[in-house]
Write a protein that binds this DNA or RNA. Structure first.
Length: 282
DNA sequence: CTGACAATC
DNA sequence: GATTGTCAG
């Protein structure tokens, strides 16, 4: 009898503990737990097949909003710091992303062949060289957009190299978001609006937003009105190969108005309004 | 000139 | 795997 009385005494406490755990478990999926979405979720993407054109794919290596109409990501977002970098060689295993919801077309590793467009990485292979698994993940076709070779291998690649330099040689931590917008690009076989028999759309422009944190690990609170933000918007076209990426710098505000996305939404609006209006000039 | 990175065939 | 091209050191 004594034992039962003791249990009755404990019951309310047990109830509170269980309820607290339950609430936490329910809340967990709702928030963007991904480190790659530290600065925000630009389109409010959710992992819900009711929104096939803004479907959140959250991987340990990066997060993205997939568009099942264009068959390319709306945006891809990833963290870049020293811990992601190592000596793993490029895996080159371009392949379909089988994690897409069943019934959706899966862009094949071969779908860009003969199109005149590169399978342009959003999260670069060279930004994930710490393990074979992480490098290989960048070759999933959901991380690709059809990119004009002169864009991808020219100023776009140079900005990627510059970004890694900020991490390796200046100790920065970056939060990067990139994608395309508009319709119709000019690749090595001319202007196209779609490739792969109309299955995949070709964007007219490619854009990128890079938040440069002086203190790795400082997160959103490391962002001040002095924080450097590099944003670029360049044509998805041939003929720009030898252009300096710096000539394509714009404000985050201009990319927001062209894409309809809201960047850095986890940063206080008073800081956002300053750093999103500024055009990088370093 | 070489190595790293972006690719294609 | 071989080849092409750019860039940084």
């Amino acid at each position: 009898m004594k034992k039962y009385k003791f249990f009755n005494f404990l019951l309310p406490f047990l109830g509170v503990v269980l309820l607290t755990l339950l609430l936490h478990w329910q809340k967990a999926p709702a928030q963007s737990s991904s480190i790659h979405l530290t600065m925000g979720n630009p389109s409010g993407a959710v992992t819900n097949t009711s929104y096939p054109n803004n479907y959140l794919l959250s991987k340990s290596q990066y997060a993205l909003s997939y568009n099942n109409t264009t068959r390319i990501p709306n945006w891809v977002s990833w963290q870049l710091n020293n811990s992601w970098l190592g000596s793993t060689p490029r895996q080159d295993d371009f392949r379909a992303d089988t994690s897409l919801p069943s019934g959706w077309y899966q862009v094949q590793g071969t779908d860009y062949q003969g199109s005149g467009f590169d399978r342009g990485h959003m999260t670069p292979s060279a930004d994930r060289t710490n393990t074979v698994t992480n490098n290989s993940a960048t070759f999933l076709m959901t991380n690709m957009i059809p990119q004009a070779p002169d864009n991808n291998q020219g100023p776009w690649a140079n900005l990627e190299n510059y970004s890694r330099d900020l991490v390796v040689n200046q100790g920065k931590e970056l939060y990067i978001i990139s994608g395309g917008y508009g319709s119709g690009g000019t690749g090595s076989n001319g202007t196209k609006y779609t490739i792969a028999n109309g299955k995949i759309q070709v964007p007219a422009r490619t854009w990128k937003v890079i938040v440069v944190l002086d203190t790795p690990g400082s997160g959103v609170s490391g962002v001040t009105t002095n924080t450097r933000v590099i944003a670029v918007d360049m044509p998805n076209s041939q003929g720009i190969r030898s252009d300096n990426w710096k000539t394509y710098r714009v404000s985050v505000d201009s990319i927001e108005s062209n894409t309809g996305y809201n960047f850095l939404s986890n940063v206080s609006t008073s800081i956002q309004s300053v750093i999103e209006a500024r055009i990088d000039n370093l």
